[in-house]
């Protein structure tokens, strides 16, 4: 029965049925990354709350590991993360766990809003949690710093993905970046496109599985976190998130490119 045993590395997303049975089996730790007040009102049964803002207020590994311990997660815990922001916030949290060295983390394949609209069970009970002890085996190979990025992007087999919206990208972006707006990664029902569609989208844009890919977005690595998992879902493995993203790049006064000689903003009806 070895072939049916649980794999070491979880698939990128978990669907609602699987999650519900894992909840019944008590074999999963579900993390809700929405704001505390939203979580308190209603959430997926048994889930614990880790608002993204709280995590970001100090995301040094030492602090994050404490947070993780307090949520009852050790190295063996299977974790599923969800949000109500098309998967971007959940992605950022999941990535942070991976960075700590946690292997078994995946994203719920839909948002809480979609879960709700399907009429699936919710709860307002806050579970009592026994603290655990997670090890700290950082994985620097999935994180890009500004310095790393600056050098790496000059290489031919490194692709830099900007996941902000098109107009923001046109206005300013890191030189050589390729723009894949976060909106193109999901559908109206799922946080990620079906695999076949996703593959085609990346293939059309010349993003090959054997390249190293660095993703970034506006400020904290949420939209690009989603892109990180989008790529992972179609078996890209050499991936890095530039967590501090464009905000830091700009503050560091690094070079910026702009689409010149066109007034594209005036086409927007916003």
């Amino acid at each position: 029965m070895c072939c049916l045993s649980k794999e070491n590395i979880k698939s990128v997303t978990t669907d609602a049925d699987v999650l519900r049975s894992e909840i019944r089996d008590k074999s999963v730790r579900v993390i809700d990354v929405r704001r505390e007040e939203d979580y308190k009102k209603t959430h997926i049964p048994t889930s614990v709350n880790m608002p993204l803002a709280n995590l970001l207020s100090d995301d040094s590994p030492e602090r994050v590991v404490k947070l993780v311990n307090a949520l009852g997660i050790d190295d063996e815990t299977s974790v599923v993360v969800y949000d109500d922001t098309f998967g971007a916030l959940a992605s950022r949290v999941a990535w942070t766990l991976e960075y700590l060295g946690h292997n078994d983390v995946s994203l719920l394949d839909m948002t809480f809003g979609q879960w709700n609209s399907l009429g699936l069970e919710t709860d307002s009970k806050i579970p009592s949690i026994e603290s655990k002890n997670h090890s700290l085996k950082l994985r620097p190979e999935i994180m890009a710093t500004a310095d790393y990025l600056e050098k790496a992007k000059e290489k031919d087999d490194v692709i830099l993905l900007d996941n902000r919206e098109r107009l923001n990208f046109l206005e300013q972006h890191i030189p050589k970046a390729v723009n894949i707006p976060y909106r193109s990664l999901g559908t109206s029902e799922k946080i990620l496109r079906p695999k076949e569609d996703m593959k085609r989208l990346f293939e059309n844009r010349g993003i090959e599985p054997d390249s190293e890919i660095i993703t970034y977005c506006g400020s904290v690595g949420t939209l690009s976190g989603l892109a990180y998992y989008a790529l992972k879902s179609v078996n890209h493995s050499n991936l890095k998130l530039y967590v501090r993203s464009f905000k830091e790049w700009k503050n560091l006064k690094k070079p910026i490119d702009k689409q010149e000689n066109a007034h594209y903003w005036d086409l927007s009806a916003e």
């Binding site: 098109r166 707006p181 909106r183 193109s184 594209y264 086409l267 927007s268 916003e270």
Partner: peptide, 20 residues
């Protein structure tokens, strides 16, 4: 939203255009 600028444009010849 997915592939253009989040707005569309109605042309004078009844087309709808997606830019950029």
């Amino acid at each position: 939203e997915t592939f253009s600028i989040g707005s569309a444009h109605i042309s004078t010849r009844q087309n709808i255009q997606l830019h950029w």
